Amino acid sequence: MADVQLEQVRKVYGNGQVAVHEASFTIGDGELVVLVGPSGCGKSTLLRMVAGLEEITSGTLRIGGRVVNDIAPRDRDIAMVFQSYALYPHMTVAENLAFGLKLRGAPRGEVERRVSSAAGMLGLEGMLDKRPAELSGGQRQRVALGRALVREPEVFLLDEPLSNLDAKLRHSTRTEIARLHQRLGTTMVYVTHDQVEAMTLGQRIVVLEGGRVQQIDTPMALYDRPANLFVAGFLGSPAMNVLRGRLRAGDGLQLETVQGSRVPLPGVSVPDPWLERELVLGIRPEHLLPVDEGGLEARVEVVEAVGSEAYLHLDFAGQPLVSRLPPTDLPAPGDLIRLRPDPARVHFFDAGSGLRLQP
């Protein structure tokens, strides 16, 4: 096992496009870190630089303390699982699992041991004689995982390995990957655009946008204390509600929105310099709570009941809001309801930079 250290790693393509801007962070020995962000944010490019499939323009990359900038992929002691299964269709599962080891000249007994061990971990024992065409998508992805597993590398790299699976298979395979990491304790770097995968798999998450690292932290720290508006809006489904305006302290603290409506904030205290300042108020849907009186008044537009919870899509003076509630005694579309932000769970951001404001 090994740690992965990136120091000011940068990627610039021949046309001048900067794909990754000075990324600096360390993935600890045995840690599972997820790189997450929207399409084009640089997460796969970053992973491919770790793998040696993309040349590093500048900066230093270390794996296990060894600088690997100019080391060939096969000599980095890494194994990669791609979005496509990339299995050999004419080979059986056992042959696909063993192929890389045989290329490297591993002894037959060692090949059989590793293939048997990987098949046992991934529940492939009864499929070793089948070919990929006879397998489901989830089974093929497990074979792809097993092919990386038999390498017994220092670092696993996984590039959106579940994106070709349906929702049920994504959930079950995601659980298998988490269990696999717990059993092996091997360093894993996992790329995804799916925030649910990121939140449920990652011990830490690296959030990227525009080729820049926006924030690195544990899943719940990112959710509870986003560093900026991008992270606040990207992590969480539905996304965080945001209201732009100025804080007024006349008749109790209120946010006067740019649309001219007012959001009472009883129980919320802010530093004096924040008053009369243009800023952004953020509130998660589950922290926008119904009240009998006071609060803000909004009109219900759509009610989404999804079993254990319900989402109310609201119109507040032309501003869309979402509230997450228990699925009981729900209002109907067209109803007016009153809601109040939980005073302990409000977030404030600078209107210009989008950065989180700390008291």
Score class of each variant (00 low, 15 high):
Arg225Pro: 14
Thr186Phe: 12
Arg244Gly: 11
Glu309Tyr: 10
Val50Leu: 10
Gly109Ser: 15
Ser237Trp: 11
Ile177Asp: 02
Ala79Pro: 02
Val50Trp: 05
Gln141Leu: 11
Met121Gln: 10
Ile177Met: 04
Glu209Lys: 15
Met220Tyr: 00
Leu145Arg: 06
Gly334Lys: 06
Thr175Ser: 14
Glu209Ile: 00
Leu208His: 03
Ile337Phe: 06
Thr173Ile: 14
Ile205Phe: 01
Arg48Asn: 03
Val20Gly: 01
Leu122Ala: 05
His90Asn: 11
Gly252Met: 05
Ser116Glu: 11
Arg76His: 11
Gly105Trp: 04
Val150Cys: 00
Ser84Cys: 12
Gln182Phe: 03
Gly307Leu: 06
Met121Arg: 12
Gly137His: 06
Lys11Pro: 02
Gln83His: 01
Trp274Asn: 11
Gly42Val: 02
Pro38Asn: 07
Lys130Pro: 03
Val9Cys: 06
Met220Ala: 08
Ala94Val: 04
Met91Ser: 08
Leu145Ala: 07
Gly59Leu: 05
Gln358Cys: 11
Gln182His: 06
Ala305Glu: 14
Pro273Ile: 12
Arg183Trp: 01
Phe82Ala: 03
Val291Gly: 10
Glu176Cys: 08
Asp335Gln: 12
Ala227Thr: 12
Leu255Gln: 12
Ser117Gly: 00
Arg262Ala: 15
Arg248Phe: 00
Ala332Gln: 13
Ala310His: 06
Leu336Cys: 12
Gly28Ile: 00
Leu128Gly: 07
Glu54Ala: 01
Arg104Thr: 02
Pro331Ser: 07
Arg62Ala: 01
Gly16Arg: 10
Pro266Ile: 02
Leu201Val: 04
Leu255Pro: 13
Val111Pro: 07
Gly354Ile: 05
Ala106Leu: 15
Arg345Glu: 15
Gly233Ile: 07
Arg142Glu: 08
Leu247Val: 06
Glu176Gly: 00
Gly210Lys: 05
Val20Asn: 09
Tyr88Ser: 05
Ile56Ala: 02
Ser84Val: 09
Phe99Trp: 08
Leu169Phe: 05
Glu54Asp: 03
Gly37Asn: 07
Arg345Trp: 02
Gly307Tyr: 04
Pro273Gly: 08
Leu124His: 07
Pro266Gln: 01
Gly146Tyr: 05
Val268Gly: 10
Asn96Val: 04
Val270Pro: 00
Glu152Trp: 09
Ser261Asn: 09
Leu265Met: 05
Leu281Ile: 09
Arg48Ser: 03
Ser39His: 03
Ile283Lys: 12
Arg131Ser: 09
Ala148Gly: 02
Glu134Lys: 14
Leu103Ala: 06
Val258Tyr: 09
Ile205Met: 03
Gln203Met: 04
Ala227Gly: 15
Ala86Gly: 00
Lys130Trp: 00
Ser172Lys: 01
Gly250Cys: 05
Val291His: 11
Phe230Trp: 10
Gly59Ala: 03
